[in-house]
Write a protein that binds this DNA or RNA. Structure first.
Lengths: 137, 137
DNA sequence: CACTAAATAAGAATGATTACGATTTAGATT
DNA sequence: AATCTAAATCGTAATCATTCTTATTTAGTG
């Protein structure tokens, strides 16, 4: 089963309605193996739904993020999203500053941080590497 | 020499003018050992300079960042700044999500990434840990 | 004291994101 | 298939951080 059908199935299982707009949003993500800004999703959506509202875009982006179907990160002051990759295991990304495509980084630096953070309660962390991928470099 | 005087001296050496506003901005940073948003700087500034403009704040924040006197990071969609700590050597931070105070992290995960990134041109990276510091936890 | 480039003030403009009332629609029920 | 209801969407306005523009002021120099 491909990522598109998988995502739709997950939505159904969680009791969300299937709408044309929602389908299209997921479709757009499935065809971009990269982080894309909300703005880009809006533009792509407008081709099929000329009167789609900001609200629909953002509401769905956050819904999909909450349900772990999207990963989010802030790049240059704009929120960017991509379909969650893989099996839900923890990972990080190299992000190409040209094309936005990503490379999975399995290594997590938190594994070696316990002793340095005695007394600190860790809630979250971010490890991202930015640069040019082989195609853009 | 304390951080405040050091910063002023650096500005002078680089040929920037000494203004009351600039002095105050640095003073504010020197009294906050933590990441603070531009908004906070503006508010503190207004106590002494009721008619200070956004422009003055942002222009100086970017000037000071460019000159490596401030470190910047994006937290919750807002740019945050803090006085550069230490001797200019590369480091990362634990950032308290309550009080904003930071703890220096000497370890840099990039040291063990070369082989994973063959063919990729690394420009930058971000490693930040978020949570509660001992005082807030 | 006069000069000039740098810095600031005031406020408008921009751009991303959020909010909201009115309308439509998916999916369940009859 | 018709009805119902909560969820989803639309259309638009509001908000918020940030950037820009023009006129004015000021620091430092001669």
């Amino acid at each position: 089963m491909n990522t598109f059908d998988l995502a739709l199935q997950q939505l159904k299982e969680k009791g969300y309605k299937k709408t044309k707009q929602r389908e299209r949003i997921i479709e757009i993500f499935a065809s971009h193996d990269q982080y894309v800004p909300a703005k880009k999703i809006l533009q792509d959506m407008q081709e099929e739904f000329p009167s789609v509202s900001f609200d629909t875009i953002y509401r769905n982006l956050y819904l999909l993020s909450r349900e772990n179907m999207l990963e989010a990160t802030e790049l240059e002051g704009e929120k960017h999203f991509r379909l969650s990759c893989g099996t839900g295991h923890h990972h990080h990304h190299f992000i190409c500053t040209d094309c936005g495509k990503t490379k999975l980084i399995e290594f997590c630096p938190m594994e070696s941080m316990e002793e340095d953070l005695k007394g600190y309660e860790v809630e979250n962390h971010k490890f991202e590497i930015y640069g040019k991928c082989p195609q853009c470099g």
